[in-house]
Design a protein around this nucleic acid. Structure first.
Lengths: 321, 321
DNA sequence: CTGAAAGCGCTTACAG
DNA sequence: CTGAAAGCGCTTACAG
């Protein structure tokens, strides 16, 4: 319609900087507009062997991963990359299936978010045909990974409560498979072990949700739990624990201090407002995407990038009675 | 490597039911395994003019849309469809750009989630080249849409509070551009207007977040707000309002009842537990995707599918003092 | 500055 | 049951 070859048309549509006569350029653009031309990314991708897309796999879409994805999206948008989203639902087979699917779609890179013992079955770094970056602690050695220092975060929480005079603690934990949580707990232990006074630490484990925290904490209180400070693996677990404490007439923070991790937006509007370790999920996502882009670009990337958590002290943690 | 033509290879790889000699089939499968063959979805898509993917656009990833996406994902997985995710961040230009991008990628259909006055600039149904389904109220007539009856939901909330003896209400609203919220408010008004007793309704508007709810409610209380029942557009706003009430010494639920919408997972662990209208976001997502698949398949689809919200009464709403 | 042509990796009538 | 060949819609050396 513009009276030019497809080669020329392609050049004006796809490469803004390619030298094309101004008049020709105009004719092509006008024709494209009149025809309602929409270029075909599959054909483009096929011939360039590049899809300008990345696969993002998360276990689920709760607030922590949602924040991570928003960070990934922000960086991806800036880089002109489209996100293919996959929810693994903590299922290893599903996760492997998503990897295969994304590989078939020829994503330029893969971002795998997790905080637990999620494996990439049979996928070592050398077997993975495309750049892959992990976000959050997980059991896949050899891939570049972006993490937040959970040991330091746990350490700092314990230090905070210790400085408020607390000596009897309860830690609400899932099980050992969850690296993030295991490390937070380890950090707490590291601090306590180097302390110069006696302390008590009860671990309530098998806690994966508000509901678990609520019921386990309820039982523990009936069993005479003596802790004056409760450390929950996440704000969600803290919320469940606070409900159980309140229901048992143990007022937070007067009778028991509570601290969580993640610092969800809502936590500051709880009453008492919840003290929480802020884990920079969005920042991790952004950094992960940028690392991936560098790897796709053939650059050397750090094998481990570590961000810091920051304590946000609020009303739920006050000096021990 | 299997000593067959690409046509035959394609048939065993891509069409399980195509008649191919058993021995040939085995040779192809073995060769594919040995070669680590991964089929190219871009080439496949190009030749079939079908990408087996759908574009999903949401304003942001907070809990409501996260639940919606989980529903969409569940149905999409079942249908063998991959999700391309786009966050519009409430920005119309960004949204339009995402639509264009998804069109270039030749998604088989588009799912647009919103609850506000988000437009598809210059895209009428006839101009949209692919099947498109809307989820949540929005300003784009002519597209099939999946909604929850927000007027009925608002009506029911008012009825609930009325039956508890409340006659003085405050409604926390964003502005008129938000269809979901406007309808919830309308439902409240509809109920009250047909009531047979005097009542008072204060509207606090301009509320888009926990923070807004917290500060506007704080001001209103200082100004002598007389409401014994607060209706918030979402649980998030309810949380902010509850914090302001607590800080002002107006105990929930003894002095003031509070009700929200959305019924986030956490709401039941607040103390008092928050009474909330459960909006079936996941169900909306699932139904939206299924409607889209039907439309892609060339079937006739309903122009409007309406789900019902369900009231979950909890401790935050009790009889008026 | 422009075009002819090959190639990206599949699918699918069509013929045998 | 199998293959040769055209075609999907781009990009990009190569030549002019």
């Amino acid at each position: 319609m513009a009276g030019v070859s497809v080669a020329t048309a392609s050049r004006v549509i796809a490469k803004a900087d390619y030298p094309v006569a101004a008049a020709t350029r105009v004719r092509v653009i006008e024709a494209a507009g009149a025809l309602g031309f929409v270029r075909n990314a599959m054909a483009r991708g096929l011939s360039r062997s590049r899809s300008d897309s990345v696969g993002v796999i998360v276990p689920a879409l709760h607030a922590y991963y949602a924040a991570m994805i928003e960070g990934i999206d922000e960086a991806a948008t800036r880089q002109g990359l489209t996100i293919l989203l996959g929810l693994s639902r903590g299922d290893e087979a599903k996760r492997e299936q998503l990897v295969t699917e994304f590989l078939e779609r020829r994503v330029d890179g893969l971002l795998i978010c997790a905080g637990a013992d999620d494996h990439l079955p049979g996928r070592t770094p050398t077997e993975m045909p495309i750049p892959t970056v992990l976000i959050g602690q997980q059991a896949n050695p050899g891939f570049p990974i972006v993490v937040t220092d959970n040991v330091a975060a746990g350490y700092e929480v314990a230090e905070h409560l210790w400085s408020l005079g607390h000596r009897a603690f309860a830690y609400l934990a899932p099980d050992k498979g969850w690296h993030d949580f295991r490390d937070r707990q380890a950090g707490v232990s590291v601090f306590l072990k180097q302390a110069d006074e006696a302390y008590k630490l009860d671990v309530l484990d098998g806690i994966y949700s508000e509901a678990d925290a609520f019921s386990r904490m309820g039982e523990a209180l009936k069993g005479g739990l003596a802790a004056t400070a409760v450390i929950a693996s996440t704000d969600r677990h803290a919320l469940g624990a606070m409900a159980a404490l309140t229901d048992a007439g143990r007022w937070v923070p007067d009778a028991v201090a509570v601290v969580g991790f993640d610092n969800y937006l809502s936590s500051q509007y709880l009453r008492p407002a919840l003290t929480s370790m802020h884990m920079p999920a969005g920042e991790m996502g952004r950094l992960g995407l940028e690392t991936l882009v560098a790897a796709i670009g053939g650059h050397q990337v750090p094998m481990r990038s570590e961000l810091r958590a920051t304590l946000v002290a609020r009303g739920s943690s006050v000096p021990s009675p």
